[in-house]
């Protein structure tokens, strides 16, 4: 069971309070009807499946209820950082273990 830092509660809490919510920074197109079939397909289905740092979303579902973003290393299963929804995609932290 992981420990996750909720950027809204500003506390590091047990994973049991959280739910995974897929890859981060995949914004819904502003006008979906204007997208091509290929663009829409990519939005719906194409994901990174990173080995290593992965930008992903979590929800503090049994807590403050907020969706937020995280960078998690899929090899070590460590969270490198978490940040609020809507914040710009940050660069990778220089060193592991920021959280």
């Amino acid at each position: 069971m992981l420990l996750i830092h909720c950027p809204y509660c500003d506390e590091t809490l047990p994973e049991a309070e959280f739910a995974y919510a897929g890859e981060a920074h995949i914004a819904r197109p502003a006008d979906p009807m204007a997208t091509s079939d290929e663009e829409w397909r990519d939005f719906l289905f194409i994901r990174t499946n990173a080995k290593g740092p992965h930008y992903e979303r979590w929800r503090h579902v049994h807590g403050c209820g907020r969706f937020f973003n995280a960078i998690r290393d899929t090899v070590s299963d460590r969270f490198l950082m978490t940040y609020k929804a809507g914040e710009a995609r940050p660069a990778l932290p220089a060193k592991e273990g920021a959280e």
């Binding site: 919510a21 819904r28 979303r57 929800r59 209820g65 969706f67 929804a85």
Partner: peptide, 13 residues
């Protein structure tokens, strides 16, 4: 409710 919250919080805040 989760799906609605997701859209509300992250797509249409």
């Amino acid at each position: 409710l989760t799906m609605m919250e997701d859209y509300l919080q992250t797509e249409w805040p």
